[in-house]
Computed example of a mutant assay.
Amino acid sequence: MGKVAWPEIELTDVSMRYATDSSEVVALRQVSLDIAKGEFVSLLGPSGCGKTTLLRLMADLLEPTGGSVKVAGKTAGEARLARKYGIVFQNPVLYDWRKVDDNIMLPLELSGVGRKERKRKAGELLELVGLKDFGDKYPWQLSGGMQQRVAIARALAMEPEILLMDEPFSALDEFTRERLNEELLSIWSKVGNTVVFVTHSISEAVFLSDRVFVLSPHPGRLSAVVDVPLPRPRTKELRGGETFFRLVSDIRGRFEGV
Rank of each mutant, 00 (worst) to 15 (best):
P229T: 05
F169R: 02
P229I: 05
P217Q: 11
L185F: 10
S68H: 13
F197C: 03
W6A: 15
V4D: 09
L125R: 07
R120L: 13
I9M: 11
V191F: 12
S209C: 01
Q147S: 02
F244A: 00
V258C: 06
R179Q: 12
V150R: 01
V191L: 09
V25A: 09
V113M: 14
A82T: 02
E178Q: 14
D136P: 00
W6S: 15
L230H: 11
A205S: 05
F207M: 03
D60M: 01
A153I: 06
P231E: 13
L55D: 11
S47L: 09
V26W: 02
E242A: 12
R29P: 04
S23Y: 05
E242Q: 14
L164T: 07
D250G: 00
P160E: 08
V88H: 01
S203V: 02
D60W: 03
A72K: 09
V4S: 15
V150F: 02
T53C: 04
E24N: 08
M58I: 15
F213V: 01
S42D: 01
L43W: 05
E127L: 07
L62K: 13
Q147G: 10
V100Y: 02
F175K: 13
A72F: 10
S23T: 14
I9P: 11
F89P: 04
E109D: 06
A36V: 03
E167I: 02
F213L: 15
S68C: 07
E178D: 13
Q148H: 03
K84H: 13
L126Q: 13
E204V: 01
K119P: 00
V258G: 00
V225R: 12
F244D: 06
K132P: 01
L215V: 03
S223Y: 00
V248M: 03
P107M: 06
I9S: 14
L208K: 02
D227Y: 05
S32I: 12
F213A: 00
Q148C: 08
S201G: 05
P168V: 01
E182D: 13
A122V: 12
A5G: 06
S249W: 08
V212F: 05
V195K: 04
I162K: 08
L184M: 08
D166L: 04
F245T: 03
I152N: 08
G50P: 08
R177N: 00
P139W: 02
A157W: 09
E39C: 05
L208G: 01
L94A: 03
A19N: 13
I87M: 15
A27W: 09
A157S: 14
P231I: 04
P231K: 13
S170T: 06
W140P: 00
I187R: 07
P64V: 12
V196I: 14
A205W: 03
F245W: 09
G257E: 13
F207N: 03
P168G: 08
L55E: 08
E183K: 05
C49T: 06
Y18L: 15
D227L: 06
A157E: 11
Y95M: 15
G48E: 12
L43C: 09
L172T: 06
D210M: 07
G67C: 07
E24Q: 14
R80M: 07
R254W: 05
Y138F: 15
